[in-house]
């Protein structure tokens, strides 16, 4: 009897909805469910954007863009992978595309690589752990490869495809990133 009463009580307690159900509701057009989905993933998406873009302003813009596109593209999610994996993939692609669009004319003409944050700016950046503060200082290509490979777990073949570079370049950028990170870490 006591067990039944506890069970009945537990049903009344508000429980967060399992993600599959939330995604399904969003796919059926529920904006309320979408807001819950946003609250659940907002920090992860923003964190990924900030590491990839090394700019809080860009990261905010892209986070919003990710969720707007997510609302329209969520029907494409068929549940073949984890939702979070799929969302991170969508986020990475939007962030990379955003970086390409926001290259200035000089970077486009002479293929100059975008630089990361300077040391002072990264130390002022709120919410980042020690490694993140170093990641955002990396030059653009090294940063993108490091975040996608070490943080997000993509293979170099996948990264090469996403960034339009050779697999060897992806590997060399990764090693370059590690060397820089170690150098900065050792000098801290």
């Amino acid at each position: 009897m006591l067990i039944d009463a506890n069970q009945a009580l537990s049903h009344k307690v508000h429980k967060p909805k399992p993600i599959d159900e939330l995604v399904l509701q969003v796919q059926q057009g529920s904006q309320r469910a979408f807001e819950q989905l946003y609250k659940k993933y907002e920090k992860r998406v923003y964190g990924l954007c900030l590491r990839l873009l090394a700019s809080p302003e860009y990261a905010e813009d892209v986070t919003q863009e990710v969720f707007v596109q997510l609302w329209h593209k969520i029907s494409q999610f068929q549940g073949q992978s984890q939702f979070s994996t799929w969302l991170h993939s969508v986020t990475s692609n939007i962030a990379i595309s955003y970086l390409r669009k926001h290259k200035n004319w000089l970077q486009k003409v002479v293929s100059i690589e975008g630089c990361g944050m300077d040391e002072q700016a990264s130390s002022m950046c709120e919410g980042l752990n020690g490694l993140d503060k170093l990641i955002v200082r990396l030059p653009e290509r090294a940063r993108l490869v490091f975040v996608l490979h070490a943080v997000e777990g993509y293979r170099h073949e996948e990264i090469a495809n996403m960034l339009g570079m050779a697999v060897g370049s992806s590997k060399s950028q990764y090693h370059r990133a590690r060397q820089l990170l170690q150098e900065w870490y050792d000098n801290e």
């Binding site: 946003y38 907002e42 920090k43 992860r44 900030l50 905010e60 919003q64 609302w71 709120e126």
Partner: peptide, 12 residues
């Protein structure tokens, strides 16, 4: 996870 400085939901 990293929290953005401002609330991004109203814009979305």
């Amino acid at each position: 996870e990293v929290s953005p400085k401002r609330d991004l939901w109203p814009g979305i």
